[in-house]
Design a protein around this nucleic acid. Structure first.
Lengths: 121, 121
DNA sequence: TTATTAGTTAACGTTTACGTAAAGTAATTC
DNA sequence: GAATTACTTTACGTAAACGTTAACTAATAA
């Protein structure tokens, strides 16, 4: 229990299913040790899972996330790959900025409608 | 040509496939007139398509977008439904805010790595 | 008249990210 | 020793959003 977790502990901690975690393993995103047949996750594995979930929240596919994780694992002097990730993140940020504009446009449309409603009362 | 569009014109204008536009029709999101068997889109249809794409950018499913479009079509005095949409948009905005935090966390991680790299040189 | 262009319907295929049994094992509890 | 708990693998199922032939039609250009 000293910094080690079962699959269900992690599932509960991150509010995802154990199935999901196994799926990430299937896809090569995480590779916990085994004790017998059971998966045992270290703190480091936990951090990795956190990175996976952050990637998901950012809208990246598991395949993309895997690439980034592999990159993190490799020798961190691979500047080129870090630039690639920076680009991806920057792309994503541009998308988010567009989404923010979309949100504001939508809210503005809704305000118009509400104004019209109130005008009728 | 006076405010009327073919399916391919719209596809090109919005940079999506004609197949996609037909698919939206299949799902009941848009219903252009026909001239013979061919679809003809009015300016209003065009606006509708724009709303669809905005919804998509916001991460809503076509089913959800359909609900909102139906709502726009109905008598706009249905306050309850507008509140529902406002809620959905607000939820989405919260997600976006989380994503912004994720982006910043990621950028900050990357900065750390870059700093380490530079320190080694 | 014969291509070519632009559109049509129908229907099966594809990808992603899991959900959901089914059937089994290993360790603990009563 | 029987039941419960916590896992395991295998494998088929699912939903969303189109992509991709295939086979056809109608209008226009050469």
């Amino acid at each position: 229990m000293d910094g080690l977790f079962s699959i269900n502990e992690l599932a509960e901690a991150f509010d995802i299913s154990a199935r999901a975690i196994r799926f990430y393993e299937d896809k090569g995103l995480i590779a916990p040790e085994r004790v017998g047949s059971r998966r045992v996750y270290t703190k480091r594995d936990r951090g990795r899972l956190q990175l996976i979930l952050r990637g998901k929240r950012l809208g990246f596919s598991l395949a993309e996330i895997r690439e980034y994780l592999d990159m993190y694992d490799q020798d961190p002097t691979q500047q080129a790959q870090i630039r690639l990730l920076l680009e991806k993140v920057s792309e994503r940020r541009m998308q988010l900025e567009q989404q923010m504009i979309d949100i504001q446009d939508t809210l503005s449309d809704l305000e118009d409608i509400e104004t019209q409603i109130k005008a009728r009362l």
